[in-house]
Amino acid sequence: MTVGLGPLPGLQTQEGHLKRGTVESGRPLAGAARRRVADTRVRSKELQRERSTLDITGILFFVLAIGVVGAGLAVVTLRNVIHSAIAMMVCFGSLAGMYALLGAPIVAAAQVLIYLGAISVLIIFAIMLTQAGDASLAAPFHRQVPFAALAALIVVGLIGWAVIQTDWGAAAQAVAVNLEQLAIALFTDYALPFEIISLLLLAAIIGAIFLARRPEEDERAG
């Protein structure tokens, strides 16, 4: 079985056409403005609108970024584990907003469903099942905190430096994900990984049931 990256050639042109249509009708951006050089009034109006879109996107980005990073810091610094779990939910929700801002609503929906809906509830259940009183409130950190902080700062410094130094050759604007194209790719090019993931989830369910079973139930059954 071949797991190639490119879709069928005929499909690609059609999809590309579809894509361009959606983007232009969805957002009046620089491409549309540039083509109408002759009519300067229309052009200035379009540019103005573009600037206001950019401003809203920028404000949303900063609000969501503060949500992500602030809630992430709250997760690692709050003493009570249940507070950390709630901060984690805020962080995941802000991330979903960021995915929507990046033009990937399907990823945002999956983020809300899987992380906010499933994993957060699982983690909060686990905390409620296991925390006896406030035993863990006394000393939430290891003695190795300085080294951990140093390692994290080195990671931020190195990757941040690499990000800023690199010329990514990226598009000026985020391009929305075409849902139809994504579905076709998921069930043709990525069909094998998709099936393997279903197998992995089955194995995880069986493993979790086996691990979380109490030993007494084992004896009673046997």
Partner: peptide, 18 residues
């Protein structure tokens, strides 16, 4: 990057398994 580093710091620094 910031989110990854925060997660890495928390993994190394916190004592609670969950």
């Amino acid at each position: 990057t910031l989110l990854f580093a925060i997660g890495a710091f928390g993994f190394m620094a916190r004592r609670n398994g969950i």
